[in-house]
Design a protein around this nucleic acid. Structure first.
Lengths: 220, 220, 220, 220
DNA sequence: TATGAATGAGATTTCATTCAT
DNA sequence: GATGAATGAAATCTCATTCAT
């Protein structure tokens, strides 16, 4: 048990070190040796826990994304309306990426480009999160909140694509500039564009006509 | 002249081979040796034309993107309205990425993540194209086509982010599925969301009143 | 401890192999691959112990020269007179070069021409030994053993230059001919040339005069 | 003939460029390409004139040393005494090395370490010059100017070794410091050490004695 | 379980040299 | 004779990975 604890410790410190090193230098320019140094273990130890460099890469999102999605799915039912759910999820991404820059760098600059990742276990968490977002969009269409005939995949691509694009530029420019809150403005635009038109309603108009007068007769 | 022709030939066949190999395997997994084989030249010859592997990578967008941007900027003035201009540019990206999948793979999976690329000459063309898109968005805001107070950078991020995200998935899924035309639906949503509201108009309502009758008095 | 022993072993066998290969072929014509083969390790192992080919080159004199200089400096105080000290040092060089032909080849044919070596750590030992020789020459001048006004640097250059030149020729001629002991003849010449003149002494002369004769008076 | 002239021109400019580049960077770090650039010809042209990089290296001393030796040998007969001849030769080396630093760098740092050079044609000139110096030393011994029993090879090694050593250090220290005239002091020491002792001569001493006086008689 | 030490397998890059024009 | 263009042949160095202890 003490061993388990220590093992968990090592496992975590390796993941943590890998996250930092991968995030800073990118997968290909990172070396196992540097990760080992930063984790305070030997290189060989890393291979005790992870089968290969790539395995280690793939293990990272599994740890982090799972937590995030669990949370989002847990609070989902308590939020009313597709727009609000989507807003919550989007902020989930935003906060996750902003507060863990190494992680977002890793995901956006390394993981996303790795075809093998799609076959790895860690990809499931990512998929779940994207699937959850999709289901909320579909819900909005089904409930009539959003226009009928919308392509929910495209809507999701717009949301995720925008987030990724903005963070992308942020990373490539060295995270220098402040990341403003672009989520609300983005969703405002988007919802404005996809919200269903109000039904043409019949308005009740009451008009009180003045009593006919002689003057009136004259005019007539 | 014969020489020039041959030299240009080699130059092009190296670029072409590099595009293909980089596009397929990614920068780090591509080898000069494979590019040389595919181009039908020796490895050393590649180094005659390009100083290093990275130089070769950077030389590709310079060749391709420049052409595309030149074209867009040339026809720009003949297109009326910000929406139309933006639509044209977006289709420019779409067609370029769809018709040159190796190129889009290269740009989206390799070049964009390379910080050094931002300092390379070839980056200028990419920047010009993004700058042109931005100016059209600004123009739409200035002309009143789009809502006042819009963040043009965010709008651009939405457009580019969506395109990139969709192509991204396409590449990662092995370009299996058909790429539908998502540009029009996307822009429809977006324009709907950012177009200025029509001014509240005064509607003319004509009412023909029935002549007052005794029955009426009774009712009242 | 077993590990230390083995590591020291490898370190030494690499140094030894490098000494031999560099000594035989010269730095530029030697290859890491041959050194590795001769040392019985892989090429990569060499890079575990030495950062680069040049580092390996520079590591050799550090090992060897240090020992030699330590010895000379240790026995220095027990030797009386500048001439004797210089003779001892010169024989130190002579024996070192003669008994370690690969080493002298290395030093004379490779190291001495490497400007970077002058900035490397291993150069210190070489410098110390030359400095020690210089100080003995200065001592001889100060004590009056040698002529006043001598340039001690020039004297040192004559000693070292002669040694180097002779070994040089020896190496270039393939170490065929026997290396006679040229140290004593050389120093005899040199000391003869730089030793102070003996003070002009007063000689005692006895003359026995013949008795004065009449003849003599006539002459006068 | 015009062609011959031009050809000679190219030949010379290649030699000149090679001298400069080899002298500055050393043989191994020099490239044919740089020499070609500096000579204003194509790389291929160099191979028209010289069979290989090494041939080019060896061709340099042939040109330069031959001239110098020719001159020395020509004036030799007009100089009286071995010491004077040796002094003249030594100054010949000194001036040649000092006035053509690229050449001395080349000779001392590259050529001298090249065993193949000893088999090359250009080596003959070097050998002639050393042989001439040796013959002058032998002449001095034979004529009785120098001590009998001297090893003329050792004397030559002392002279050449000293010169080389001093220039060596000069080059390795980047030719920063002024090169004083060390030839005269060096030869003064050396000649002092090898000059034959004057024969013990019979000196003629005349003494004029005072005439014998009465006082003398008393003393007797 | 943990690791120090060792290495196999390549990749990039460099240049002297050749040859068709 | 001159050369632009092409390349064969290596060499250094890097790292993920393994294994005996």
């Amino acid at each position: 048990m003490g061993n388990d604890y220590k093992a968990r410790d090592k496992f975590s410190s390796i993941i943590e070190a890998a996250l930092k090193v991968f995030g800073e230098k990118g997968y290909y320019n990172a070396t196992i040796s540097e990760i080992a140094r930063k984790a305070g273990v030997s290189e060989a130890t890393i291979y005790e826990y992870f089968g290969s460099k790539e395995d280690l890469l793939f293990a990272i999102p599994k740890e982090i994304t799972t937590q995030a999605v669990d949370f989002l799915e847990a609070i989902g039912p308590y939020i009313r309306g597709a727009e609000n759910k989507i807003r919550t999820i989007t902020y989930g991404y935003f906060n996750l990426y902003r507060d863990n820059p190494d992680y977002s760098s890793l995901v956006l600059l390394d993981l996303k480009h790795n075809r093998k990742f799609m076959e790895a276990e860690g990809y499931q968490a990512v998929k779940r999160s994207a699937g959850y977002l999709l289901s909320c969009i579909k819900e909005g269409i089904a409930s009539g909140e959003f226009k009928q005939g919308l392509d929910p995949y495209l809507v999701r691509s717009m949301i995720l694509g925008t987030i990724e694009h903005v963070f992308f530029r942020w990373h490539l420019r060295g995270r220098r500039d402040e990341l403003g809150d672009f989520v609300d403005p983005m969703l405002d635009m988007l919802f404005e564009g996809i919200r269903s038109e109000p039904e043409p309603r019949a308005y009740q108009i009451s008009i009180t006509l003045p009593p006919p007068s002689s003057a009136r007769n004259k005019d007539g």
